[in-house]
Design a protein around this nucleic acid. Structure first.
Lengths: 238, 238
DNA sequence: CGGTTTGTTGAAACAGCTCAAGAAATGTGG
DNA sequence: CCACATTTCTTGAGCTGTTTCAACAAACCG
């Protein structure tokens, strides 16, 4: 089953017909090496893409060479449903690690939404959840301490990966470098490094060898003022 | 004409039937005094709302009493279309100044989208543009200097107000206090105050008596690395 | 007109950045 | 499986940006 279907089914009941329709969406699968550009800034794609395996990031680059990651996409994320309506990319999408992405044409998206308006709303929901995540990031960046931001990010990612069915037991593979985490949280590597050490020393969470181990999720969430409401991980008729 | 219709018509061609349909959406209009809560955090609204007059803000509050504004909504913004799909509010919406808001039920939204799938996509577009604005804010907060952040915000708001038909000639009414601007950009009032003075001293922009005067939009945009692509202010078939 | 909110200023403390260098981990070709 | 090159992580030191606290001035409101 597609991780996307699994993630959707954490948010609403899907009929067998809808699952069939989703599984029959024609995906052109492409593999990307770490750092490769998946969708170029300013391009006008004719397809949307979904992460099948690995991580991808949306990012903006600045004049001084600085980078800001505005979203991290994990397996099951319908990354570029936005572009179906925005038409022009205002940012680029790149592979974080070695990853596989599926492309499907706007035509097939439109056909699916016309065949099932409910599925159309679920596609819409997927973009709206992305927006909720971005709002949470804005709050983190504006008002939380560095240690809290890191903790918040680690909590969020655990729940998202769990929803996609690729994390459990409070642990998951996180293929990010500290530089990338800095670009994501809007901080320098050096500072990330130091605060990460402080966070590790609390023993609430570990991150080594590309694996995150959350030893005390509740305490970590408490530290980060993390409230999972914004992830909409509840089954509701939508 | 609704400012919402005006803003949409900057992004796609609307048929007469669609404009009629929009104008016939039943809106229950409510006036709010400055600071009043329009939608409560954690509530489950049964209606979406649109700003008719004045400004409204989404915000998160933190344990220490801090506040982060994650979106500023101006006349023509269909503020709470998100909740149509999210169901539970993960944040509150409050009036910035004295404002008028129109509420319309999820039922009428659903009827309109079923009557016109194209209008449905335009509603979806409206939420996706909100997301694009949030991504731009993330980049601002993470990687721009304070002066740039202020400048970026002032540029963005001018274009959004112009699209809604309530700003022109590089000037507009901005009913924010410096404290609110700080909550929006994730900075303290004191710092906002000092950097605002520096920005004023460049003569690129003025802000006094609740009015913003952009003396040199291009130079201000250049300073802020502002690229309006993300606002999707182009007519495209969507 | 007086009370309250908003804007402005100074000074000290703290958070985060940059630069630079060395240590550890990872990847690659032989 | 080792040796080497490259990337990533870690550390120190000095500097810049931002916050906090506290006070006063100016603007606004009833």
């Amino acid at each position: 089953m597609l991780p996307f279907v699994r993630a959707l089914s954490k948010r609403d009941r899907l009929s067998v017909a809808e699952i069939t329709l989703l599984n029959s969406l024609p995906f052109r699968k492409v593999a990307f090496v770490p750092g490769a550009e998946i969708i170029a800034e300013d391009s006008r794609p004719g397809e949307s893409c979904m992460v099948m395996r690995g991580f991808a990031a949306r990012s903006h680059y600045l004049r001084n060479g600085g980078r800001q990651i505005t979203a991290l996409h994990v397996p099951g994320d319908f990354v570029d449903l936005h572009a179906y309506l925005l038409k022009v990319m205002d940012h680029g999408v790149a592979a974080i690690n070695s990853c596989e992405v599926g492309f499907t044409s706007y035509d097939s998206i439109r056909r699916a939404t016309e065949q099932s308006p409910h599925l159309g709303r679920l596609f819409w929901l997927s973009t709206v959840i992305d927006g909720a995540v971005q709002r949470a990031w804005i709050t983190c960046m504006g008002r939380l301490s560095t240690k809290q931001r890191i903790a918040h990010f680690l909590c969020e990612l655990y729940l998202r990966l769990e929803a996609a069915g690729i994390a459990s037991d409070n642990r998951y593979a996180l293929p990010l470098t500290q530089t990338q985490l800095g670009d994501l949280l809007g901080l320098s590597v050096v500072h990330i490094n130091r605060k990460l050490q402080e966070l590790r020393s609390t023993r609430l969470v570990d991150w080594k060898g590309g694996m995150v181990f959350i030893n005390d999720f509740d305490a970590l969430a408490e530290l980060a003022e993390f409230d999972p409401t914004y992830l909409s991980l509840r089954i509701e008729p939508r």
